[in-house]
Computed example of a mutant assay.
Amino acid sequence: MTPFRPGPDGYEASWEEAERHVLAGVAREVAALLREQAGLPDTDADDPLGALAATMQSTGTPREPDDPAARRLLPDASRDDASVSAEFRHLTQTDLAAAKVRGLELFADLLDGAALDDVDPSPAGLDYGLDDELDDRAVVLVTRQDARDVAAALTDVRLVVAQRLGLETDDDVETLHDEVLADAVDDDAARGLDADVRRYWGGIFVAAGFAQESLVGAMLDDHRASRSGG
C-alpha cells in the first residue's frame, strides 16, 4: 500500500488485491453492524439505505446501541443527562448512521471497482503483515468529491477494530502499531486474543490508519496548493 497522492482526477494510491479485498469486507461488516444497531432496515432497490423506513420508525424511542463498537460510532451526546442523550439520538441517530453506512459502502464499492493498471510492482509504501496469496496491484482512485466520506469511513473502521482489540489509549495504539510493523505481535491473554488474531486485526488497523492519514494529508496538500495559487 502506497500513500495517497493528489492527481488530476482525485487522490491515487497503489494497493495490493489482498488489501482491497480485506478492507472492503471489513467496511461492509461495519456498515452491517451500524444498520443492525441503529435499526436501519435492510437494503432494498427503492431505498438503498433504508432511510425512509428508519425515519418513520424513529418517531418512537430511539434504539440505543448495545454493541460497544457501535457506541463508539454513535456515542451518547451527554454522559450525565440521560434525557439529553435520548433526545439527541431521537433527532440525529438515523441520519448519522445512514450517512456512515453510505460512506462505508461507497468505500467498499470503490475498492471492489479498482482497476488493475500498470503500476510499479514494488513501490515504496507500508508493509503491515496482512498475509494473503493475492498480490495484484491496482490504482485506488478517490475522487475529490468522495474524499471526505472515504476518510470518515476509514476512521470508522479503525474505531471498530480498536474496540475489538481493546485499544483504549494512545499508548495502546502506539504499542500495537510498533508490534505490527516489527512482526512481533503477542497474545493478549487478558482479552482472550491469540497472536494470530491480534496480528490480523492489528494489520487492518494499521493499514486503515496509514490510508486515512495519507488521504487527509493529500487533501491538505490540495488545499494549500489552491490557496497559494499553485
Rank of each mutant, 00 (worst) to 15 (best):
R72I: 08
L33I: 05
L104N: 04
Q93T: 05
D109A: 15
M56H: 10
H90R: 15
E29H: 11
T43I: 11
P48W: 11
R102N: 12
D95F: 11
V84N: 03
L96N: 14
S78I: 06
L74W: 00
A32R: 07
A38W: 01
R102T: 09
D76Y: 00
D44K: 11
R71F: 04
A53L: 14
L110V: 01
R79C: 01
T61V: 13
R63Q: 14
M56C: 04
D95W: 10
P75N: 06
P62S: 04
T61L: 09
V26G: 00
Q57K: 14
P48T: 10
L73T: 08
D42C: 04
R71M: 12
E105D: 09
G39F: 03
T43M: 10
F107K: 00
E87P: 04
A70K: 07
L111K: 07
H90E: 07
D44A: 12
V30G: 07
D81Q: 10
D81E: 13
L34Y: 08
A38Y: 01
D47R: 03
G39V: 01
E105G: 04
V26E: 02
S78A: 14
D44C: 15
T43S: 15
A86L: 12
A51F: 14
G103R: 05
Q37A: 05
G50H: 02
A31H: 08
S78G: 09
A98E: 03
A31C: 12
E87Y: 09
L110D: 01
Q57F: 10
P62A: 03
L40T: 04
T43P: 13
L34S: 05
D46E: 13
A70M: 11
L74P: 02
E36H: 08
R72W: 12
L49I: 06
R35K: 01
P48Y: 10
A54S: 09
D95Y: 12
L106R: 12
A51L: 15
V30A: 03
L49D: 05
D46L: 15
A108R: 00
T94Q: 07
E64T: 13
D66V: 15
D46C: 13
D47I: 02
E87C: 03
E64M: 11
E64S: 08
E36K: 00
F107P: 06
A27V: 02
R89N: 00
V30Q: 01
P41F: 07
Q93G: 00
E29C: 12
V26Y: 08
P62T: 02
L40P: 04
T59Q: 09
A31K: 03
D47A: 06
D109L: 10
L49N: 07
D95V: 14
R63D: 04
G103P: 09
A45V: 14
V101A: 07
S58N: 15
L111M: 15
V101Q: 06
P41R: 09
T55G: 05
A98G: 11
P65S: 04
D47N: 08
D76H: 08
V30R: 02
